[in-house]
């Protein structure tokens, strides 16, 4: 597993993908920070996290589009699947490689926190809570992206399909306010990655919601493992 993780990590930075991701991350965060803190003259980090939530949905497919697709294309999946590593080891290795690149991008945003702190009082507990929650959300995004990449050998299809799934989740999220039936609301809430994030934005660390993110991640990673196993029977 660590061998695969290291290789993919290196792969992100020998191809443009890793740089594109980190650059996109920095641009988006800079713009948000600029707009929220300068225009509103407030140092509300909450807006920053809110933007992060949605912009991440747009940029994480950059990290996951190649994950399995490229291996299928170059037939290196044949190498991985015939090496003494279990399918779950392969999936976890690839997942953590993408996740670490994400963490790298996130660490860069700590600069904003420091700047905000210099200008006024920042609720440190809330910021830390938000950082942890963002990691949970990113894990969900990445696991969905990794799963979708295991379905196709075409990177572009992989990226677009992942974006489509995130868009669909957003639409479901918007529907939440439009319906009144309790059980539909319950189902929509259950499906909504975004809505759950509000608790964190409000400064409350909700363990239940964090566990939800981790569970969804686990489900998609499990599905990816099953997908690899199923390919053997094609």
């Amino acid at each position: 597993m660590t061998a695969i993780m290291k290789r993919d990590l290196k792969g992100y930075f020998t191809s443009p993908l890793g740089y594109v991701f980190v650059a996109a991350y920095i641009i988006v965060m800079n713009a948000t920070f600029y707009i929220t803190s300068i225009m509103n003259a407030s140092n509300g980090l909450t807006t920053v996290f809110n933007v992060m939530l949605y912009s991440l949905a747009i940029i994480t497919p950059i990290l996951t589009m190649r994950t399995f697709s490229e291996d299928y294309k170059q037939k290196t999946d044949q190498l991985l699947l015939t090496s003494p590593v279990s399918p779950s080891g392969i999936v976890l290795g690839k997942f953590f490689a993408a996740f670490l690149v994400f963490v790298f991008g996130l660490v860069l945003t700590i600069v904003y926190v420091i700047i905000c702190q210099a200008f006024g009082k920042v609720n440190m507990a809330s910021v830390i809570g938000n950082y942890v929650a963002i990691l949970g959300v990113a894990a969900v995004y990445i696991s969905i992206g990794v799963f979708i990449s295991s379905l196709t050998e075409n990177q572009l299809i992989s990226a677009i399909a992942t974006l489509a799934v995130f868009a669909l989740l957003l639409i479901l999220d918007l529907c939440y306010n439009l319906v009144n039936t309790a059980w539909i609301k319950a189902v929509l809430y259950w499906l909504s990655i975004y809505r759950r994030y509000n608790t964190f934005i409000m400064g409350v660390f909700s363990l239940a919601d964090f566990v939800y993110y981790i569970s969804v991640t686990a489900v998609f990673l499990f599905l990816t493992v099953r997908m690899l196993e199923k390919k053997r029977w094609s």
Binding site: K10, G11, T14, Q74, K75, D77, Q78, L79, T82
Partner: peptide, 13 residues
């Protein structure tokens, strides 16, 4: 040790 029909190479290494 397996050499498949198409060698499984990572071209970026």
């Amino acid at each position: 040790g397996y050499l498949p029909e198409q060698p499984p190479l990572y071209l970026d290494m």
